[in-house]
């Protein structure tokens, strides 16, 4: 479970204040967070994953209190418990498809790649690139890039998938393919999707939809 309580976060140089009274996301409960651009949805995901430190309140992921973790523990949390899919893909352009997908393992504290070989093969087949794992990502289309990014997020089989507007720059057909891939693989490994999205057509896939404005206003979810 992800539990956020009386969270307050303010950027050092800005006047923006993120204030979340209460939010619970249970394991297995795919949740979508919706709201206007710039309201703080992405910031919320960054605070929960430890990329930003809350100035007040409590954030716990499966019982692990984020504010009590050091840099090493936070990196370990993001590496093993949370898979990230970003709006701008964030693939390393000079690495191959295979190396991009395996990056969370290769550069982790326990870089044991051998055990993930069959899972990697399945993921590559699922996104339709099983014959091209050593190709450079620079040759891929935007839809293919995002599917590779999804595979990278899934490679560790994390309990949670943080997905930040993954289809913002994709056409409807590729958007469908990305959502299909996310949900099919997440259900397969028992991962919970927490997504920030504007896409109305995808909201029906989620178990709960959290309007951000209501969340900030004190609405209870989870």
């Amino acid at each position: 479970m992800i539990h956020v309580q009386d969270l307050e976060f303010r950027y050092p140089a800005g006047s923006f204040l993120l204030s979340i009274p209460d939010l619970k996301i249970a394991a297995g409960q795919h949740s979508a967070i919706t709201g206007e651009s710039g309201c703080g949805k992405t910031t919320l995901l960054r605070v929960i994953s430890g990329m930003e430190m809350a100035s007040a309140g409590s954030v716990a992921v499966d019982g692990q209190e984020i504010s009590k973790c050091g840099d090493r523990e936070l990196r370990s949390l993001r590496n093993q418990k949370i898979g990230h899919v970003f709006q701008d893909f964030r693939l390393i352009d000079y690495l191959s498809i295979r190396d991009n997908i395996l990056l969370p393992i290769t550069l982790s504290c326990d870089p044991v790649v051998e055990g993930h070989g069959s899972w990697l093969e399945e993921l590559c087949q699922a996104i339709g690139i099983h014959q091209l794992p050593n190709h450079a990502v620079a040759r891929l289309s935007r839809g293919e890039l995002q599917r590779v990014a999804v595979c990278r997020a899934l490679i560790r089989q994390p309990p949670y998938l943080f997905v930040d507007e993954p289809t913002a720059s994709l056409d409807p057909e590729n958007s469908e393919r990305v959502w299909d891939l996310l949900f099919s693989q997440a259900d397969r490994i028992g991962s919970t999707i927490v997504a920030v999205t504007h896409e109305q057509s995808s909201l029906e896939r989620f178990d709960q939809v959290i309007p951000f404005a209501e969340l900030v206003a004190g609405g209870k979810y989870g």
Binding site: S76, N79, I92, L103, P104, L107
Partner: peptide, 20 residues
Amino acid sequence: SEHLRTMKMLGCARSRVVSL
């Protein structure tokens, strides 16, 4: 720096990034 930030966001160990 963007690549290094991505590695941080993916939870890559600092020591491994430095080793790289």
